[in-house]
Computed example of a mutant assay.
Amino acid sequence: MSAPDTDHDVDLLLAFLNTRDEEKHTDVLDDVDEWRLWTRSNGIRVPGGPADVRPLRDALREAIACREHAPDLTSGAASDVAVDLRAEVRGGVPVLAPTTAAGVFLAAALRLTILGEWDRFKICPARTCRWAFYDRSRNRSRSWCSMRVCGNREKARAFRERAKT
């Protein structure tokens, strides 16, 4: 079972990765007011607008998709993005201390990477979905964001294709 801080990082990162919705053709980052509302509702209290975080979101999604669909690619296959991120010692403990919204999301991704949880993030392979999800299965083999929706659609489509031949 994961620690509460880990769960918070997972939830925050998923919310960030899914600010773009392929099915509804919407993107929170296309509207500054919508972004401000999103940051408030997700507890982001540091500066950073849509233009500041979009490159990071897109690079993280691309990194996950590249890893999922071409796991043998060397590092650097996804876009490189630089984000300033401070580290501090607080109460005798080293911590990441982001000063921007992009830094908040990158700090969450780094903490999850250090814990070996980053590879649990996946992108649904359904072309109309592309939702980011966190694979909580024991053997990390989950393929779909939802078996009831995307997985079922894909399995039905594959069945119809096989039935044609």
Rank of each mutant, 00 (worst) to 15 (best):
L106P: 05
V28A: 06
A87Y: 06
T26E: 13
R57I: 08
L73Q: 13
L115M: 11
A97P: 01
V10S: 08
P125S: 01
R140K: 01
H8V: 08
D30E: 14
S137M: 07
A51E: 14
L85S: 12
R40Y: 06
L29P: 05
N18R: 05
P125G: 04
T100F: 05
P50N: 07
Y134P: 01
L60F: 03
A63G: 13
I44P: 09
V104L: 01
S79E: 14
T39P: 01
I44R: 11
R67A: 14
R36A: 15
H8K: 15
D21H: 01
L96P: 12
T39K: 04
K155Y: 03
R111M: 01
L60R: 03
S41W: 08
L110Y: 02
A65V: 09
R153Y: 04
T128D: 15
L60P: 04
R138G: 08
R148D: 15
R36H: 14
N18L: 11
R142L: 03
G43M: 06
A101T: 10
V32S: 15
A59H: 06
G76F: 05
L17A: 10
A101F: 00
D31A: 03
I44L: 13
R20I: 11
G48V: 04
P94E: 10
D72N: 15
N139G: 14
W131T: 11
A132F: 04
D58S: 14
R160E: 14
E154G: 09
D119Y: 07
L13R: 05
P47W: 10
L60N: 05
G48A: 02
E154F: 15
R111L: 03
V28I: 07
A59C: 00
W38Q: 06
R162D: 10
R153M: 12
A63H: 12
D9H: 06
A109S: 01
G151K: 02
L13P: 09
A51L: 15
P71K: 05
P98V: 05
R20W: 12
L85V: 11
P50V: 10
V32F: 14
F121I: 01
G76K: 11
A51M: 14
S141G: 15
A3Y: 14
P47G: 06
C150I: 08
F159Q: 12
V28C: 07
D9Q: 07
C129L: 02
A63K: 08
D27S: 02
V83Y: 00
L115W: 14
L112E: 01
V95W: 08
S143H: 07
P47Q: 01
R90H: 13
S75L: 15
G49A: 14
L14I: 03
E22K: 09
L115V: 09
T26K: 03
R160I: 02
R57A: 01
T39R: 15
L85W: 11
T74G: 15
D84V: 05
D80S: 15
E68N: 09
N18D: 10
D27N: 02
T19S: 11
A132N: 02
G49E: 07
I114V: 07
F105V: 06
I64Y: 04
Y134V: 00
F16G: 03
L73E: 13
L14Y: 02
P55G: 06
